[in-house]
Amino acid sequence: MQKMWKFLVTVLMLAAFAGVLAGCGGDKAEEATPEASKEQAEAEEQAAPAEEAEPLKVGFVYVSPIGDAGYSYSHDLGRQVVDQMEGVETTAAENVAEGPDSERVIRNMARKGFDLIFATSFGFMDPMIKVAGEYPDVNFMHCSGFKTADNASNYFGRMYQARYLTGLVAGSMTSSNEIGYVAAMQIPEVIRGINAFTLGVRKANPDAVVRVVWTNTWYDPVLEKDAAISLLDAGCDVIAQHQDSPGPQEAAEERGVYSVGYNSDMASFAPKAHLTAAIWNWGPFYKETVEQVRDGSWQGGESHWMGMEKDIVEIAPFGEMVPEDVRTMVEAQKAELVAGNDFVFQGPIKGQDGEIVIAEGETPSDAELLGMKFFVEGVVGSID
């Protein structure tokens, strides 16, 4: 029995030793060559899920609520075009006051790693330039201003072209020869628009005048509507505006007279009054700018001022009350502007006092247009 036990122990030890030898031999046989290791690493790398690229973060800063149906609403329509782009994430801050509040909002976006920030009101210019100096790796775009930096450009549209066309319509439709204009701020942008509108009015109707009331607000629906009512009380039978709300349109509708909107098609607010509107189309420009930032071709320090030839500005569809001959006249003038013939401020043009301010055959430079601080003949109102 003892011999049998020793025999079994010996057999088990030999079997274990043979297993160890087999294991060592197996490891050596399966040892990967350098080529095999490289192939295995490449296969594992291909099989691993690719890291998703960070989305391009784009911010928009608005001076009024998106629901203003006007200026900020038109910019937000452009933002929505950008938001549909693959690999792009957008954020909008609305109803931001010009001055320190806008500086805080713009800086907060830059601090959070936004790649591109659009500041869309004139009063955002200095705050944006200040923040741009603090965040040189962020790209900034300011609407309607004139200052730039290495990482900040500005942009705007030649809205005066659309204003001129809507003036043609207003001048053709007035019976009293008194047209009211509810105006926001006494800055060149607004003054330029009033002048272009008046030139269109008097091209269609040399006897008509444009009465201006200043509100000194961008967005105050109640005040803007009251201003329009004061013009209606003075005998105006067409109301135009450079305001963000449809308040003036609603006043015209309630009085049974005509109106010309601004920023967006405001026909739904005054279906019986609305003749047309000077409107923005920001989508194509915003999309192009985002693509440039993404591919590295965007440049700071530039100024972009585009007109009807770039489809940035347009006029809304005519109201059904606008006669066919007026439509034909306006479309012919629009075709000239779309073709690049910017004739709106071509002289001779007289100022309010009847003296020539732009000589015959002359056209103001962009710098002169951007700094315009006088009214043309036919405007009833003053600039402080």
Rank of each mutant, 00 (worst) to 15 (best):
F118S: 00
A267W: 08
G59W: 03
G180R: 15
Y258N: 15
V58A: 04
W305N: 03
Y181T: 11
R163V: 02
N108V: 03
S259M: 04
A50M: 13
A29V: 15
P206D: 04
P221R: 08
C143S: 07
I383Q: 07
G59Y: 02
P206Q: 05
G23L: 15
D325W: 01
D265E: 06
N216K: 13
I383G: 09
V20R: 05
D311I: 00
Q249A: 11
Q299T: 01
L77G: 04
E94T: 08
A277M: 07
G78R: 01
V105P: 02
S74I: 00
Q186D: 07
D76T: 04
I179L: 13
I106N: 03
E30M: 15
T120H: 03
W280M: 03
E39N: 13
T10W: 04
V210G: 13
A277T: 05
T174F: 03
R202K: 12
N108M: 05
F118D: 03
S382W: 05
Y258I: 07
T10I: 11
M128G: 08
E360C: 05
Y135H: 09
F318E: 02
Y135S: 02
P65E: 08
M128A: 15
V260K: 07
I279R: 01
G145N: 01
S153L: 00
G193R: 07
E51N: 10
